[in-house]
Amino acid sequence: MAITEKITDTTVPTFWEGAIPVRYVYTFGLAGEKFFRTVKDKGTFLATYCDECDISFVPPKVYCDRCFKELDSYIDVGTLGYVETFTLSFRNMDGSEKEIPKILAMVRIGDTDGGLIHYLEGFEIDEIAIGMPVKAVLKPKSQRKGSIEDIIGFGPVR
């Protein structure tokens, strides 16, 4: 009667292995294209701003998610920001230990409401604090491809 039969020999249950063998090519969208093109070509960040709701978006959006207004003017907000929050990562993706922990932060850009999740670079762990000012460290222009990887991380403001 029972659907489940008690398993006493753990070598009996068998399984079938497989994968979903696809890969993805994402476009960045209307606003994302402008944002990453500008990172690549000009080394700075763009925002959009909704004057109805007084909210700004970094990375920019073509619409305000509060009131649905179309946002079509882009503002250069520079590459300065401050640490909103951070964490230390001691493990690699495969679970092995990192020799030097990676510092991952949520960086608020300028005086916008938006920000980026990225690494902190060039800091001693002890000196990191929430609220600390940081500045984006970009790859040299010739190596930039128009992607989040064009940003090496956020470093100290000198």
Binding site: G18, V22, R23, Y24, T27, G32, R37
Partner: peptide, 12 residues
Amino acid sequence: LTTEWEPNLKYA
């Protein structure tokens, strides 16, 4: 511009 991702997920 594009970015790519190949999921490295295996199932049993």
